[in-house]
């Protein structure tokens, strides 16, 4: 007979090996048959993902291993999310961040990497995808009680949308409610300052460091 710990270990192993096969079922089993609370489970998974992130930081595993693990986490979260919403307890996140690529820009990979690394650093990450207008960033932030909004632009022609996002926040009187980080190849700390953003990430590692620092956890 397998115990709750056995099933949990099996699920953590899926995370470790970036193997999505059967991960959802294991999560369901833990919630429905093994009496594990959704918060307890999220915390265990986040802790594991953090370990995996640390391994990446030390150069022991590669980027695709980290991203693979984060994707397993995402697929488990689709099972966990409804249960979490019903639950009275709160999961222990470092913070919540909405992340996406701005309108007119369909570059996706950069913000995906940043999202994986933020997850591995203990953040709750709301990924809204690419080609997103400012209002969608703001809507997702409002709905999820986010601390930070991260907007990526990979083209010089779409960089102005990052500026529009900040203007839109100001217009709605929400500018002080969220920290805003901008990133993407053509952006720079100077650009971030010019448009009044709170931080800039030159690469994924720096984005995570800046995010932590902005919410006082760095």
């Amino acid at each position: 007979m397998s115990t709750k710990e056995d099933v949990l270990n099996e699920l953590l192993k899926r995370l470790d090996e970036a193997e999505p096969e059967g991960a959802d079922e294991l999560a369901k089993e833990l919630l429905e048959k093994r009496g594990m609370s959704p918060v307890e489970l999220v915390n265990a998974l986040s802790k594991k993902l953090k370990e995996i992130g640390d391994k990446f930081g030390r150069g022991e595993i590669f980027l695709m291993d980290l991203v693979g693990s984060a994707e397993v986490m995402n697929s488990v979260m689709t099972v966990l999310r409804p249960a979490l919403e019903k639950s009275k307890e709160k999961a222990e996140y470092v913070g919540t961040i909405v992340i996406g690529t701005v309108e007119g820009d369909i570059h996706d990979i950069g913000q995906r990497i940043v999202a994986s690394m933020l997850q591995a650093a203990g953040f709750r990450v709301i990924q809204i995808g690419n080609d997103q207008p400012p209002e969608n960033f703001i809507k997702a932030a409002e709905e999820n009680g986010a601390d930070i909004i991260g907007a990526s632009a990979l083209l010089t022609t779409t960089m102005p949308v990052q500026k529009k996002l900040i203007e839109e926040l100001k217009k709605r009187g929400l500018r002080d409610k969220y920290k805003v980080i901008v990133g993407g190849a053509p952006t720079s700390p100077e650009w971030a300052e010019e448009i009044g953003a709170d931080g800039h990430g030159a690469d994924a590692t720096e984005a995570v460091e800046v995010a932590k620092r902005l919410i006082g956890k760095g």
Partner: peptide, 15 residues
């Protein structure tokens, strides 16, 4: 289309 190879098993296996 517009997807990512980063999380594919193919990538991890053959990298």
């Amino acid at each position: 289309h517009a997807g990512s190879y980063l999380s594919l098993k193919h990538t991890r296996k053959l990298f």
